[in-house]
Structures are given as C-alpha cells and as structure tokens.
C-alpha cells in the first residue's frame, strides 16, 4: 500500500510542480506533513544530498524520499511516479509540435519565445553565479563591497573559463572535475 501511495504522491508532484526541480520543494513539505513519511528537517537534508550528487534535483529528491520511506522498491515507485506525468504531457506537446511545425503562428510564437527562454536561463545562471562567486553573508556595506567577493572562486572561474576557451573540444565533465578537485584541495566551502 505504501508503494502505491508513494507512486500516487509523486505522480501528483510531477503533475503540478511546474518548472525546475526546486519547484517540487513545497509539494514535498506538504507531503511530509500529511503522510508523516519525513519531517521538514529531513527535506532540507535531502536537498543537500540532491545538490551534491549528479542528477536533476527533483528526481534525486523522489528517489531519496522513496528509499527512506520504503526501501529500493519504494524509491522505484516514487521515481516512476514523478516522471510519468511529464512523459505523457511532453509526448502530447511534441506530437502537436510535429504536426504544426510549418504553421506560421507556431513559428512566430517561437521566434518570440526563444530569446525569452534564453533570458530565463541567463537569470537562473545569475542566481547560480551569486551563490558560487559571492559570500553574501560577509556584506558590511558599499564602502567595503569587496568583502563579499570570494576571490578563490573568482580565480577558479577565470581558470575554468580560460580552459573552456582554449580547449573548445574539452567535454564539460572535465571542467566539472577541475571544479571538484580544486574545491576539495583548497577547501572552497571552508569546511
């Protein structure tokens, strides 16, 4: 019964959480409160694990919750639950797009949507940049604004940027590896 319930709860989350993986957070808090499967504190732990492991955050959250609630089979049920709604919705949209590919209204809409989509990605990138390149808690005022700059992070960003420009054929995974090794060696989180 728990398995079916896990599938159903994550199916609903997958159906209503619009946007990125973080959009699943409010649904998880609500799910924990209603089912008693996990506390809000555990959700925060799950988020930390999701963010420090490969894979989309929403998926990691589902697998982790499913596992802690009902073992391997539980995580499988949660996983299938969260991806099924988007598989159905996207297949319908993809089929519709295929049928209307040469429609002038559809093409006109995407002409406007493409730069908007790029703008949304740029805004998200800026948020990521603030989290990785600035120490917002060190802010003491404009007269000493440089205290928020995390110089180690800026240096690493400059190195990775230079490497990505010099070796354009290099796979992004190598740049991520450089980041991980430098972060661990020079204790980027100060931990």
């Amino acid at each position: 019964m728990t398995y079916l319930l896990l599938f159903w709860e994550f199916f609903k989350t997958g159906l209503f959480a619009v946007g990125g993986g973080l959009a699943t957070l409010p649904f998880l808090y609500d799910m924990g409160a209603r089912t008693g499967w996990f506390t809000a504190h555990q959700v925060a732990d799950m988020l930390a694990v999701s963010e420090s492991t490969p894979g989309p955050i929403g998926i990691n959250m589902a697998v982790y919750t499913g596992y802690t609630t009902a073992g391997i089979l539980g995580s499988l049920c949660a996983l299938v639950g969260i991806v099924t709604p988007s598989i159905i919705v996207i297949i319908l949209i993809a089929a519709a797009l295929k049928a209307f590919r040469d429609n002038k209204y559809v093409n006109g809409a995407f002409y406007g949507i493409r730069p908007a989509s790029t703008g949304l990605i740029a805004a998200a990138g800026l948020t990521v940049a603030i989290g990785s390149l600035l120490r917002t808690d060190a802010w003491t005022g404009w007269d000493r604004f440089w205290t928020v700059l995390d110089w180690k992070a800026w240096l690493l960003a400059a190195v990775i940027f230079a490497v990505s420009r010099l070796f354009k054929k290099l796979h992004p995974a190598f740049l991520i590896l450089i980041g991980a090794v430098a972060g661990a060696l020079f204790r980027f989180a100060g931990a």
Binding site: E51, S52, T118, I121, A122, A124, G125, V128, A129, G131, S132, L133, A153, L156, A157, I160, F161, S164, P172, L175, I176, I178, G179, A180, V181, A182, G183, A184, F186, R187, F188, A189, G190, A191
Partner: peptide
Amino acid sequence: AIVQNAFAGIRVAVTVLILNAV
C-alpha cells in the same frame, strides 16, 4: 567536509558552463 568543499568548486564550474551555454 570533502563533499561540501568539492561541491562548492563544482558550483563555480557550473557557473562558467552556464555562461558559455547562454
């Protein structure tokens, strides 16, 4: 500690990667 430190470095790499992608 090693996970937290490595991930802080990964976030810097991801920042650069997103910039290039944009």
